[in-house]
Design a protein around this nucleic acid. Sequence first.
DNA 1: GCTGGCACTCGGGAGCAGTGAGTGCCAGAC
DNA 2: GTCTGGCACTCACTGCTCCCGAGTGCCAGC
Lengths: 348, 348
Amino acid sequence: MAHEDRRLQVLRAIVQDYVSTNDPVGSKALAARYDLGVSPATIRNDMAVLEEEGYITQPHTSAGRVPTDKGYRFFVDRISQVKPLSAAERRAIERFLDGALDLDDVLARTVRLLAQLTRNVAVIQYPTLARSAVRHLEVVQLASNRLLVVLITDTGRVEQRVVEIPVVTDAPAGADPVAELRTLLNAAFVGAKLAEAGLKVADLLDTAPAHLRGLVAAVSATLVETLAEPGEDRLLVGGTANLTRGGALDFPGTLRPLLEALEEQVVVLRLMGEVAPSHVLVSIGEENAHEGFTGASVVSVGYGSAGGTADLALGGLGVVGPTRMDYPGTMAAVRAVARYVGQLLAES
Amino acid sequence: MAHEDRRLQVLRAIVQDYVSTNDPVGSKALAARYDLGVSPATIRNDMAVLEEEGYITQPHTSAGRVPTDKGYRFFVDRISQVKPLSAAERRAIERFLDGALDLDDVLARTVRLLAQLTRNVAVIQYPTLARSAVRHLEVVQLASNRLLVVLITDTGRVEQRVVEIPVVTDAPAGADPVAELRTLLNAAFVGAKLAEAGLKVADLLDTAPAHLRGLVAAVSATLVETLAEPGEDRLLVGGTANLTRGGALDFPGTLRPLLEALEEQVVVLRLMGEVAPSHVLVSIGEENAHEGFTGASVVSVGYGSAGGTADLALGGLGVVGPTRMDYPGTMAAVRAVARYVGQLLAES
DNA sequence: GCTGGCACTCGGGAGCAGTGAGTGCCAGAC
DNA sequence: GTCTGGCACTCACTGCTCCCGAGTGCCAGC
């Protein structure tokens, strides 16, 4: 029906207007600012229906309407138009990310960039260890019973662990057990995906010379353990100052729970959940299970393995902001940045 | 004089009361809550003098008095009593920090601990590279013209850089230039303080075999450059949620500038400035040059080289909070944590 | 099915009096 | 000289009422 269609236009107009002005929007303002071709009275009727259906709500009688979470959801899924990035924004992305020194630097810059582009809080997950391949393993002796093991992956991530080891007693005279261990480990693991490392450990334990068994066992245990903790993936957060834009308006309670949740990295990691590089995930208000996020939306996407058939991400990145956010713009920015970061990591 | 002395007691009482209640404190409340042995009227006279001298101020007539920055300064320098940590707090420190896996983990735990103990924002600086000694240098070939150099220091810090290198053309057949380079670098640098590394570079360039000169030059340049950037020292921040304690009361404007400053790590690093392990530095309100910090105080101290004669810190740690903070308690916590972290790093 | 008109609702700002915490000052006691 | 009780004064804050206006829902007419 024709008026069914117009109702969606009204909803879209309400969302757009509310996002840009932060004022509940009334029928008159809507008629004046958007070319809907009908009078305020008609719009009022449409709004009554939209409210009935739960897409919008009134903060109080005699105020305009505000989109509900359900309204935003509908907007994002059905009626928002993709907003291409401006040339200036594209340039900003390149300028910002080129010339990064190392992985840490890439991630730090990305977070700053994304926070700046979207004027919200940005988060980025370190590349998952499990899906990276080993480039090199370095072993350094710290003390007679302690080794430092440094793992370097093909995404440039460097992970270090101190390992307690049994003191080697039965080594052939003149041998350098640590050097042997290094050679052994590298021969076994270099090139392997870390997810498969568990399998190789068993082999290695069988084939290693007897006097190295103890060392190999200790180091392997630590490696496997490191990889087995997916929650241990680190997270970088930036742009928290943006939470205070719009005073106390955006976040009804305080922003305390949100700040706390952002420091509890685990919470955010779970929210980003299973991100894939192929499509942007939007989680709105109450849809976020965690209490701190009920007034916020999360827009996230995976990065890495760009265009690959296996749609697995190295990690996720995203933006956290008020439910009242510019979804099309944020989604475009998040997608573009993720793509660029993916390229950057693939190159190195 | 006797009443000069009492005036200081009044000032102390005002600071203590204001810190704990967050209400401007009046003469009557003071007389009731603190055993000053005089009547409210007398206290009023003292307060008039203290105000005259700039130690306290009235938000408005008919309100109590509030300490000024100068008042806090005097309190910290002259009349505060050291507040020993409770047994529970000591236990918390040990429980929290023991069992840390590596340097990153130690620092992350420290920040969380300090934020929790002081109920404010905690910051910690990564151990300065310049004052650490090299434990090991690892070189990994990424591509024919790119190396990854990983530097491991005796404080457990791991730093990585990608180095662009000239392609080696004149190597003897069958040689492995990267392995040679690794041997060479480790022979030259291991055990050296990084601050002295610059000197060694020159030697190395002279003595290195001709076909490695290009490599050595490129890698050395990067190393020296890395060390020359003191501002590049990284910083960990935690407990920002504590800024919202006490609603908008503590930070008069918004807390936006403060959050921004905390993300601009450089700003904080400069505020911590030249911290020494020997004594706790307190910077109050307007004393902080940066605008975002004019409503805040910073309590910082150096950690590392505990008890050494050369009183140089590996890095600084500290707490950022409202000027209205519990200075004695915060100072005690900061000092205790720094000492413990210093020990922990010395052990490893 | 759309529109103009109209009565109704209600949040928020302005104006205003009352309250009480806190002050400054002064005269008298120790 | 120092402290104290008393007293008048100031002024933020609270609660109250009133009023305005934005926005609504409904209805009759086109």
